Each structure stands twice: as structure tokens, then as C-alpha cells.
Computed example of a mutant assay.
Amino acid sequence: MGLKDFKVKVFKENILHNYHYLKELRNKDIIAVVKANAYGHGIENVVNFLADAGCRYFAVARECEAEKILKLKIADINIIILETIDELEFIKNNKNVQMVVNSLKELKELLKNGISTKQLHLKLDFGFGRNGVIEEDFDSLKKLVIEKNLKFKGFCTHVFAADYDDMILIEERFSQMLMELGKERFEIIHIQNSAGVISIEGKNCTHIRCGTILFGLQEIGYYDPCIKRAFKLTGKILGVKSLKDLKYIGYEKKENIEIGKYKKIAKIRLGYGDGFSKRSEGIMSIINNKKFKIVHISMDSSFILVDDSVKEEDFVEIFHDLEESIKHLKVPHYEFLSCINDRIKRELI
């Protein structure tokens, strides 16, 4: 790796702090959601040190993510696949891998194919429209569960609403359905997403399901000052050139870029080939504790308008101000951080 390449610095102690803090806050064990490369933080490293800290449940979205965890050969952990999967042999061949049941039809097919309910988490959908057994199918679900005396690994939903009152309604309806099915049928019960973890109690739950909040990425409107951020994207200035000597900045003609008072341009080794989207053109970087605008992003490099204080090999940080980046990109932080791909090394700090 070149000395001037970018890297994601992952603050291990901050993630461990968040893990222990949230566990104590709700007095419940944690299901660590590590999909999308642990939201850009590096799935293998994160699973390794959280397992060492006592975490026994990890949730992912795809089989390929579960396979990465299996290759770590960590004993006594459970891997929950949140999305529907097609390769049922994968579940049959890996007893510590479980999957979420996302419809009544899917449950019937899984039972028909001999999948053990001890590897299944039954999920309800309260209008999210993404995954889970819908409410209108609940009576049929209840009949099937009781007639076959089914007992599952887990029972869950997704508290997706940003509105607190809606969260409470979902929690109450979920608890009602849980009692109708029989709480004793489920080994673990979980409903909260990251916003829900810090805003509702999680009545009848045995576990809390923590994703972005575990990494210090908090939803706007749901803020806990005890949560610590763990992601830092940083590198060095590759070179600095005078603008007067240039006709182009990357692939863009100089006159098409609003240069303002600046007389120099700095190049960094980070581009959209690394998952740093061209939509990030216009965001601010931090160099020597000052803000400088990124004005052009190519596949393998980007360009920043700078002043005379910036020199080659100075450190630069991207996405320093997450709220500012969210407003510019008009997407949540977990979207643009997860996009930073494997060309950028993850370094545990």
C-alpha cells in the first residue's frame, strides 16, 4: 500500500464502547448487524473483536456476507441472514446460520424443504413494505404455527418509523401477536433498529438489533451523546500544482470549475473507483484543521482547491462533518460510507 493511499481508520475501542454501553442501556444481549461490510468498517475485523467481547449473534443481508464470517471459524456464534435466500442447502449445511422468514408463503416452502424452525426467525411486517409476514396473513400464520406446534429460533420485526408514536404502536401490536402465538415458541425476540434502540424499551424482547448505531452513526433526530463514532477516511496529499499552469482539472476544463480566490489545486488518491461517488464533488475536506472544497472526482483521484498553507504529504480527511455531508449528498451517512470499497484498506486503531 502506497504511503499516500487513503485508508479507513476504524476505532475499535469506540465500537466496543458502543457495544457495552448499548448492552447495559437496555440490559439485553446484542445482535450486531454487520451487513454491507459492517457499514464500511470491515466485516472480518469487526466480527472478530466483537466475538472476543462476547457477542454471539451477527446479522447480515446476503449469503456471501455469512460466508465471510464462517471463514473466520469462530466457535459458538450465530449468523442471521435478514433477506430471503435461494440456496437452502447453505442453511442445511451450516447449523449456526439462520435466516429470517419474510412471508407466509416462504415459511410453507421452507417447511416443505425440511428446513428446521430452529434455524428460522419469524418476521412480521407492519407496513414497511420490505420484509416480513403481513398483518392480513397473521391469522393463517397463527393457525399453521399452532396446528404444527412450531417452535422457532427467533421472532422479530423492524421498527422502521421515524415517528415515536408509530414506534410505540408497532411495539404494542408486535407484543400482542407474540402473545397470541405463544412467547415460549421463540428462543430470542428482537424488534429495534438503531433509532429504536435508544428511543423505545423493546417490550418482551430478549435482544437488541444494533446496526449503524453500533458504529457511532446516529439517525438525525435520534441522538445519544454517549455514542462514539468509529469511522475516519483519511490520506495524504499526493501533490500540489498551480492553477495558472493548468488547462484541465482532471477531465474538467478549468474554466468550468468555480475557482474563486484559490490559486492551487491538490490531488489525492481517492476516486469513484474506490466508491467515492462523483456526487461528492462540492463537499469539504479537512487539511491542517481548515476546510477545502473537493471540486473534481475521477476514477482514481480527486482534486481539492487549496491555498499556500497546503503542502504535499499533508493529511486530508473526507466526511469529517457527517451532517454536512448528508445535507450535500442528500443520502444518509450509512449509504456513502458503505460505498467505500475494498480498494481502501481498513485499519484498526
Rank of each mutant, 00 (worst) to 15 (best):
L322R: 09
C226W: 06
K28N: 08
K311Q: 14
K68C: 03
G239V: 00
E106D: 11
R173L: 14
D245E: 00
D224W: 06
M99F: 11
A51C: 07
E13C: 05
L329Q: 08
G275Q: 08
F315C: 03
G42D: 04
G54R: 05
E172M: 15
K264R: 10
K151T: 12
S116E: 09
Y57G: 06
T84F: 13
V101C: 04
K92A: 10
K23V: 07
I198T: 12
I220N: 03
E172W: 09
I265L: 00
I43Q: 15
I134H: 10
F174T: 04
C55N: 14
R279Y: 07
K293N: 04
K327T: 06
I340Y: 03
A266G: 00
E13A: 13
I213N: 02
I208R: 13
F11S: 09
V10N: 08
G42S: 10
Y334A: 12
N113W: 01
C205D: 13
R279M: 10
R279D: 09
C156G: 11
I265P: 02
G182D: 10
I213H: 02
L141P: 07
A51M: 05
T84V: 15
I283S: 14
H20P: 00
I189M: 08
A51L: 06
Y57W: 14
K153V: 00
I81S: 12
D166C: 02
A53V: 09
N14I: 01
D165I: 09
I30R: 15
K278F: 00
I77F: 03
V145C: 03
H333E: 04
I318Q: 11
A75P: 00
S175A: 15
K183A: 11
L144C: 05
L110C: 13
H328L: 13
L178W: 04
E219C: 05
K183C: 10
V47E: 08
H190Q: 13
I257M: 06
E147D: 12
D86M: 10
K4Q: 11
